[in-house]
Design a protein around this nucleic acid. Structure first.
Lengths: 344, 344
DNA sequence: TTTAAACATGTTACCGATTCCATATAATTA
DNA sequence: TAATTATATGGAATCGGTAACATGTTTAAA
């Protein structure tokens, strides 16, 4: 249906080699001929086929991106960053959303291999899954660069972009301490996950550094879901020697925590201070006095893509393993002119 | 580098046609031969090239998706829906995020044409932009199905999925009226946009139907940004004959509105009822008493993809123009067990 | 036993580009 | 003026598959 390079060649009365030269602006073409060809291209509304080009050049200029939850703004922002850099380098993105499913993740990898993409950025849902790791290794053996986003695959040799969860939690805790708090509760994520463990470590480090004893009664284990944080926060608010601050270790759990606080009519930060790991824009805007440790999501995406591109342009075995750790940023309440909570 | 069908043929001692038959499970192949071939495939870790296949079959099994803001959960959920259906039909997605930029939107369309994708789902940022409409028309003339998501392109002939903004705003207003409100303020979106105008219409329709006069002093024009709603809400709260309910016509504006309310320590819904068009999950979870008119985003994505697929499988001029309008859903406070606001 | 249908496999053209090589002419340089 | 070199274009192979067609072998029906 669509015009091909042969149609252009015929119309312009030249060989398709010459047309190709014009398309790629390579080699010698007489100005007059070039114009004839451009005219034919215009007339036939011709667009070269990336498919045919890919087959012949062995380059697709496409990368694969695999995320578990596209509707989560965390990943949305990562993709935004990836997309910006991809655009700058004229690379296309084939996107897969796995809905946290191992099957879909595996299927995505298979398809990407078929598609002869040039590289993969993946936020692995099951980093510990043997089968997938095997598959990632297969990909690696094919010399397709792989970049991990915020997901450690232990014992493997992939480049990646990571967040320094320890430092982030450390900074958050330090900030609370500097504000005068010493009774600081923490609501952790699922302790089976590496970030949850790291964050707890950061919290402890800060306490120890300040000679504050780590009180086990102040350490509560949530599971990343808002319900768990809701329940735990209620519990915290009922304690006799109630903490003066709560450090909540995820996005969704901040919401559960704030629900409890909202319900119990507790003043933040007057009665209790809240620090969150990961931001919740909505609460920021509404003006709740919550400080955040904020993972630089867009930057993660950009950095990951840059890492990938570095490797894309290196032939053969020259690909370097590079792990970049980004520091989360502390956003203190008030530093963005948060309004004081007048709700008493 | 990677093994080709010829390598498999050679290894298995057959012609590549036979290999192709095994790959596609078509035609006759002796069981014994099949096994030889499968063994070779395994040994050489062979994956067929989708590129070569696309060139020869003239099908890429890929569609293009263009969104303005991938980090906005509204689009994230649409993509989630698209992705689900795409996966069910083994279609891949090339994603473009335009950052609300006309240039990027146009560039995306060009690339998709090069990529010989089978169809496009687009949420047009500049539906009124002549150039882009021209481009969309070009695409259409190429017989590539196009599906619009929630963006009217007037006078054009594209299939699409739309939200019934009039009905949504009507339902929201009716709900408030049924709760006994008659002094209902509205904060509109940018009146240059079709949805904003439609929603205002729905609001008026409900009032008229209930013989409530449309009070111009209760109609406030915002611009979709939270700051505008913040300012307007403050203004509303200061009115002498203050409305008893506010209908806020967007996502972000709900946040601005709630900021003002939170600041002024007003009880919702005791002192004033709030209804939003578009949901804000975070506020839902925290337990603010806001009712919502909720666009069915995931369903939109699914429906759009299904619409596209319908057209994908129809040859030539048989493509049908189909516009599907989805009804937003009313989520009343309390219907999800919202906790009463005790903040007085 | 002959004949047609089913089974099994291979030959070859083609999809739409790129690219190496060959060839011819024009412009420079020796 | 002859020898180079730069300019201009085309021929043909190639990328890795698919598919129409051809051909040979079994198997089953007549």
């Amino acid at each position: 249906m669509a015009a091909t390079i042969n149609d252009i060649a015929r119309t312009a009365g030249v060989s398709r080699t010459t047309v190709s030269r014009v398309l790629n602006d390579s080699g010698y073409v007489k100005e007059e001929t070039r114009e004839k060809i451009l005219k034919a291209i215009q007339e036939l509304n011709y667009t070269p086929s990336a498919i045919a080009r890919s087959l012949s050049t062995n380059r697709t200029n496409t990368i694969g991106v695999i995320v578990p939850e596209i509707n989560n703004p965390f990943f949305g922002e990562i993709i935004k960053g990836i997309s910006q850099v991809a655009d700058e380098h004229n690379l296309n993105i084939i996107l897969f959303n796995t809905d946290d499913t191992r099957d879909k993740e595996l299927k995505a990898l298979k398809i990407l291999k078929e598609q002869r993409i040039q590289g993969i950025i993946i936020t692995p849902t099951y980093p510990e899954d043997k089968f997938n790791r095997e598959y990632l290794n297969t990909l690696k053996s094919l010399n397709i660069p792989v970049v991990l986003m915020d997901g450690h695959v232990e014992y493997s040799n992939f480049s990646g972009v990571f967040i320094d969860h320890i430092k982030g939690a450390f900074d958050g805790t330090m900030a609370l301490i500097e504000e005068g708090h010493s009774k600081i509760a923490i609501i952790t994520g699922d302790m089976n996950s590496r970030p949850a463990r790291d964050r707890l470590t950061g919290y402890k480090n800060a306490l120890v550094l300040n000679h504050i004893s780590v009180n086990k009664r102040y350490i509560f284990h949530g599971n990343y879901k808002h319900e768990s944080a809701y329940r735990i926060t209620k519990q915290i608010l009922d304690m006799e020697d109630r903490p003066t601050a709560i450090f909540v270790m995820s996005n969704m759990m901040i919401l559960g925590c704030m629900k409890a606080i909202y319900e119990e009519n507790v003043n933040v930060p007057g009665d209790i201070a809240i620090m969150g790991f990961d931001k919740v824009d909505a609460l920021n805007i509404v003006g709740m006095n919550i400080s955040f440790i904020n993972g630089p999501t867009i930057e993660m995406g950009r950095t990951g893509m840059e890492l990938l591109i570095d490797n894309l342009y290196k032939k053969g075995g020259n690909k370097e393993l590079k792990r970049i750790t980004l520091l989360p940023k502390l956003v203190l309440k008030g530093s963005e002119k948060y309004i004081k909570n007048k709700c008493k």
